[in-house]
């Protein structure tokens, strides 16, 4: 595996007033690496990956993504976001546009592709997430699982170099989680660099190169999945795994 770092967090901290959502986070994500971030709720997982594309501004430390050093209101942030795809817990599809238009609007308005090119790309990725037949529907007419797959396709249409997933299956009905995870596994197989915040430990076992465990805004443990799942070094991670793997 080539070891070129794409995301480098060096002592990153984030404070909301007196509350420290992130404290001294060190993390490196290399090209083609799949990192799964887990931890109890409120541990700062979402805040961390939202910092990676500037949806949150970190308040201390250095954060470099795709060679661009991030700081609040940095003018390069828009350029960066075009290359960093994001999938949200609540899908956040554009309800006034059809599925196809949801996928085309970024490439057309931001990448300035012409309509035919944008549509070809959109159809390609709709095929990839296995819902080409839904192209002309509105998001509200789709199931949650389908909406999340559209959201993944929307991010992919920008041809990103990294994909960030912020609890992509947490808002889904249980029977729809599988279809979304399948698409994500396939995406991982194509070699996409991915940072995934999730509680789906089965998925993590299958695709993760690195597991990151967070608690109270700090990274408690970073280890390969074999170690993490069988013999975690921290007691806290062991307790967490006991809690969620019991069921």
């Amino acid at each position: 595996m080539t070891k070129s770092p794409i995301i480098v967090a060096n002592g990153v901290g984030k404070a909301f007033g007196d509350f420290h959502a992130l404290t001294d986070v060190h993390m490196t994500v290399h090209k083609n690496e799949r990192v799964v971030v887990c931890g109890p709720s409120g541990s700062g997982k979402s805040t961390l990956i939202r910092c990676f594309n500037g949806l949150e501004n970190h308040s201390s430390g250095n954060l470099t993504v795709d060679g661009i050093e991030l700081y609040p209101d940095s003018p390069e942030i828009r350029q960066l976001r075009q290359d960093v795809g994001m999938v949200f817990q609540q899908f956040n599809l554009f309800p006034h546009l059809t599925v196809l238009e949801n996928l085309m609007i970024g490439p057309m308005k931001v990448r300035k592709l012409d309509r035919a090119q944008a549509e070809a790309t959109a159809r390609k990725y709709l095929e990839r997430v296995r819902i080409p037949e839904q192209a002309d529907k509105r998001p509200a007419q789709l199931s949650g699982g389908q909406q999340q797959r559209v959201a993944i396709a929307r991010a992919l249409c920008m041809e990103p170099r990294v994909m960030l997933f912020d609890e992509p299956t947490s808002a889904l009905d249980p029977e729809m989680i599988g279809e979304v995870l399948d698409v994500m596994v396939e995406l991982a197989d194509t070699g996409m660099t991915m940072v995934v915040v999730t509680h789906e430990m089965g998925f993590a076992r299958k695709v993760a190169d690195t597991m990151v465990f967070m608690e109270a805004g700090r990274i408690v443990e970073t280890s390969p999945p074999e170690t993490f799942f069988t013999n975690p070094t921290s007691d806290r991670a062991r307790m967490f795994l006991d809690q969620i793997l019991e069921h």
Binding site: R78, R81, F88, G106, A155
Partner: peptide, 10 residues
């Protein structure tokens, strides 16, 4: 919606 728009570079 703002975040989604921002996340595709708008």
């Amino acid at each position: 919606q703002w975040e989604a728009a921002a996340s595709i570079g708008m």
